[in-house]
C-alpha cells in the first residue's frame, strides 16, 4: 500500500481534505463514545469511554487545525468530499455505531478493532509524510493515542466478558466484514439505480416535460386557492 498512500498524501489538496474529514470522523466518534458513557451502567467503563471521547475531541481539534493550516495555503481548496473518500477501514471511525443496541462486549470488541485499524492506517500515513513533518507529527501523536485506546478496550473486554473476549472479537470481525460487503452492495445498488433512473429520465421524460412546461405557463406566481380546501376531510394521501 506504500505507493498508494504516498500518492494520496503527496497532493496538498487531498492532504488538507483528508485531515478535515478525519476531524469530522473523530468528532463523530467522540459523540458515539460520550453516548456510550451515558448509557453504560459500569462506572469504570463510563470513565474509560469518557476519557476516550475526550481524546477523540482533542484529535478532531488537532486534525482540524492542521487541515485548515494546509487549506489556507491553497489557491483553490476544491470540494470537501470526492468519490472514494472514507473507504479505508481506519478512516471511518466507528462507522454509524448504534451504541444503545450493542452489548458491552460487542461494543468493546468493535472499539478495539476500529482503533486497531485506525492505528495501522495512521502509522502507514506517518511513514509517507516525510515531506510534511508537521502533519506527520500530528498523525503520529494520534496513532500513539489510538494504540492506547486499542489496549484499554482489549483489557476492558477481558474484564467485562471473561473467557469470551476472543469470541467477541471474532464476532466483531465478521460483522465488520459483513458491513463492508453491505456497504459495497449498497454503493453498487445506488450506482445501478442512478443509471437506470438517468436512462429513464432521458428516454421517458421529454414528452412529459413538454406538457409540464405548458402546464407551468398556466400557473402564474401569486396567490392560489388552497390545496387544503379541496379534500381536507378525507385523510387521503393526495
Amino acid at each position: 500500500m506504500y505507493p498508494v498512500h504516498w500518492l494520496v498524501w503527496i497532493d496538498p489538496h487531498r492532504r488538507a481534505r483528508k485531515l478535515l474529514q478525519f476531524a469530522e470522523v473523530e468528532a463523530d466518534g467522540a459523540r458515539d463514545l460520550f453516548r456510550a458513557a451515558e448509557v453504560v451502567q459500569d462506572p469504570i467503563l463510563r470513565r474509560r469511554f469518557f476519557a476516550h471521547a475526550r481524546d477523540e475531541v482533542r484529535h478532531a481539534s488537532l486534525f482540524r487545525t492542521r487541515g485548515l493550516a494546509l487549506r489556507r495555503r491553497l489557491d483553490r481548496p476544491g470540494p470537501d468530499h470526492v468519490l472514494g473518500d472514507g473507504l479505508l477501514p481506519g478512516e471511518r471511525g466507528f462507522d454509524r455505531l448504534n451504541v444503545e443496541a450493542e452489548s458491552m462486549s460487542a461494543l468493546l470488541a468493535f472499539i478495539h478493532l476500529s482503533e486497531r485499524a485506525a492505528s495501522h492506517s495512521f502509522a502507514a500515513y506517518g511513514a509517507v509524510l516525510g515531506h510534511d513533518p508537521e502533519t506527520r507529527a500530528v498523525i503520529q501523536q494520534i496513532a500513539r493515542d489510538e494504540e492506547g485506546h486499542m489496549r484499554y478496550s482489549r483489557v476492558e473486554l477481558s474484564r467485562v466478558a471473561p473467557g469470551q473476549a476472543n469470541r467477541a472479537l471474532w464476532a466483531s470481525r465478521l460483522r465488520r466484514l459483513w458491513r463492508a460487503y453491505v456497504r459495497t452492495a449498497l454503493v453498487m445498488a445506488d450506482m445501478i439505480a442512478r443509471l437506470i433512473l438517468t436512462l429513464l429520465y432521458f428516454l421517458l421524460l421529454p414528452p412529459f416535460a413538454l406538457l409540464a412546461r405548458r402546464a407551468a405557463r398556466k400557473e402564474p406566481p401569486g396567490w392560489h386557492i388552497c390545496n387544503a380546501c379541496r379534500n381536507d376531510r378525507t385523510g387521503g394521501q393526495y
Partner: peptide
C-alpha cells in the same frame, strides 16, 4: 434485502 440489492436490479 440490502445485501442482495445489486442483484434485485
Amino acid at each position: 434485502v440490502e445485501a442482495l440489492a445489486p442483484f434485485i436490479y
